[in-house]
Design a protein around this nucleic acid. Sequence first.
DNA 1: TTGAAAGCGCTAACAG
DNA 2: CTGTTAGCGCTTTCAA
Lengths: 358, 358
Amino acid sequence: MDGAGRGRRVTIADVASRAQVSTTAVSKVLRNAYGVSAAMRERVRAAIDELGYRPRNAARAMRGRTFTIGVLLPHINNPFFAEILDGLMAQLGGTDYQAILVQGGRDPQGESRAIDALVDRQVDGILMVAPLSSKSGLEEVATGTPTVVLGPHERSAVYDCVNNDDEAGAELAVEHLIALGHRRIAHIAQKDRNQGRPATLLHTIREQTYRRVMAEHGLAGEISVATTSYTEAGGYTGARELLARVPRPTAIFAGADLAAFGALAAIHEAGLAVPADISLAGYDNTRAAGLAHISLTSVDQDGAIMGRTAGRLLLERIEGRTTAVQFCVTPALVPRRSTARAAGTRGRGSQVSPTQGE
Amino acid sequence: MDGAGRGRRVTIADVASRAQVSTTAVSKVLRNAYGVSAAMRERVRAAIDELGYRPRNAARAMRGRTFTIGVLLPHINNPFFAEILDGLMAQLGGTDYQAILVQGGRDPQGESRAIDALVDRQVDGILMVAPLSSKSGLEEVATGTPTVVLGPHERSAVYDCVNNDDEAGAELAVEHLIALGHRRIAHIAQKDRNQGRPATLLHTIREQTYRRVMAEHGLAGEISVATTSYTEAGGYTGARELLARVPRPTAIFAGADLAAFGALAAIHEAGLAVPADISLAGYDNTRAAGLAHISLTSVDQDGAIMGRTAGRLLLERIEGRTTAVQFCVTPALVPRRSTARAAGTRGRGSQVSPTQGE
DNA sequence: TTGAAAGCGCTAACAG
DNA sequence: CTGTTAGCGCTTTCAA
C-alpha cells in the first residue's frame, strides 16, 4: 500500500495490466456493474489490494458521480448542526458517499459563494442547513443538483424539505411560560438579512408564533422583541437590551439555545438569577442545555433524525426520484430548571414537572 | 447568468467561441497567466460574465490544482475548532482557495477514511486539526499533499506544525491552582486511542505536565487522574469519578474547556459549588468559558491566529516551499471566577486578580 | 463476457 | 501575443 509516495499515483490502467484485463473490466468491478465473471472480479480485486489503488475522484467526476455530498451550514459553532451532521453521517455510513462541509457565513453573498463552491466541485447532492438564500436561489441550484433543504419552510417542487414544526415548537415554549404565570414574556429574534423573503424562515416563524400566542392570550401589549441573532453574542446583547426595558420582563423566550446561553450570561451579569428573577427558555435542546449547571428549558427537535432523513432523501434523489418530499419533525418541550412559576403567582395553569435533562 | 439549468453546463469552449478567441486564451485569463493582451482579456472577461461561466473543478483537477484546502477535524462540536476555522477562512478570504471540511471522528480508522476522502478529491493542501493518526501516517499523506498539522507536537521534515505550547499552558493552569493553596488537584485527561504513539499528542503533554508540576511541588501523592475524553460527556463522567474519590479533590484541571463544561454539570449535580467547594480550570479559552454565568478559568491559545497561520503555511507550501516550519503560540492563563483560594488557606502564593472574561 | 476507443473540460507544451 | 494539440484517469458506448 505505497503508491502514495512521490511517484505517479496508481491508476486504473496499472490495475488492469497487473490483473491482465482491460481498464473497462476494472471500472466495472469498481462500480459493481454487470458483465464481469466472478473469476475476473476476483483477479481485479486482488490487483487493487496489492497496488493499493484508489479511484481518483476528479476523473470520475468528469464522467459521472463524485460520491460526494456537500453540506452547507452557516457556521460550525452551533452545536445543533453537529447533531444534524451526526445523523447525516450515520445515514451515509454504509454507502460510498462522503460528506464534505462548507461554511456559508452570516450573509447571503458568502453563502452563495459557498454553494457555488459545492456546485463547482460537482457534488452529487447538497444538504443546505438553515440557508439564507432566496427560494429562487435555492431552486436554481436544486435544478442542477439533487438538493435537500433543512430549516426553512418553503416547499418547493424541485427540492426536498426537512424541518421541524417551528410553529408548534414556539407555541409550546410560549404557552409553557404563560402557564407558569408569566405575562411580560420577551423574545430574542434573529434579524432577517434577506429582504423580500417571505415569512418562511424558521426564525421568522418562531417570532411570529410568539407574537400570535401572546396576542391570543391577551398579552399583545406585553410583546417585547430584541432582534439580534441566534448566536451567543446575539443572545447576550439581546438580553441586555430586554433587561433594560421598563418594566423588565419576567421571562425570555430565546429563539435558539445558543442565544439563550448568551442571555444567561447577560442575566447573570445584571445580578439577576434564573429562574428566580427571570425564566428563560431556548430552542433546539442542544446537549449543553441538558447539562446540570445550565439546565435550560428548551424545545427539542431531533437533530439526528433530521440529519438522517435528509441523508436518505438525498440518496433517493440521487438515485432518480424527482417528486418533492417534505419531512416534518414534531418538536417537544423539555422543561428544566431555567423556567419557574412567575413571582407572585401560584397554582394557575398546568403543573410543570422539572424533568432533569440527560 | 443562467446556464445552471438543466442544459449542458457552460464550458471554456463556449466562452472562447463567444469571445472569438481560443480556449487557451480563456484559460490564461482564468489563471491570470502571462501572455494575454489587455483587449483580449477584456473580451474574455465579458464573455465569462455574459455566459455566467464557472470553471469546472474536476476538469481542473485532472490537470493540476483544485483550489481546495481540505480540513480534517475530529468533530465540529468543539467550539475551539470553530475559532481555528475562522482564522483559516480569514486567511483564505482573498484567494481562490476554498476550504472544505471533513469529520474524522474519535478513532484512527474513521480518521483515515476521512483523510483518504480528501486525498481522493485531490485537495491542494490539508490542514489536520488535532489528528489521531500516527506520525508515519501523517507523513505518508504529507509526502503527496502539502500538509499542516495543528495540535500534535511531532515535528516532521515533510509537514508544518502549528500548535500552542501545551506544556507551558498546562503548567500555568496547575501552578495557578497550587498558588491558590490547592493540594488535592485532580485532572481530567483524554484516553490515547492510538497505541504506540509517543508522548507528543497534546492531551498527553497536558497530562504529563500536570503530573510533573504536581511532583515538583511535592504533591506527587495527590495526583489523581480520570482518563475519559475531551468532550462534555467525558468531562461529566470524569468529574463524577473524581468526586467519588476519597478524599475529594478541591480543584480540577480539565484538559479542555469542553470537558470542563461537563465537569461543571457533574459538580453541580453533586450539590457542590464552584469555586466555593471546588475550583475548576479548563484549556482553550473558548467563547463559552468567558460567558458570565460560566466564567471558567482557562488557558488561552489564540485559535484564530493558529488557523490563520496554518492557512498561510499551507499556501506557502502549495506555492512550493518544502522546508518544514513550526509555529508555536504561547498560551496565557485567563483567570475567572471558577477558581478561588482553597478553603482554609490564605495569602500564600501569588495573588490572583479574578479578571472578568470578555 | 470482454475490450477498444471516444471523449468529459481543462491546462500546458509547443508552434506560429 | 495567439492558437493547435495532446493528454489527465475515468466511464461508457459499441463491437467482437
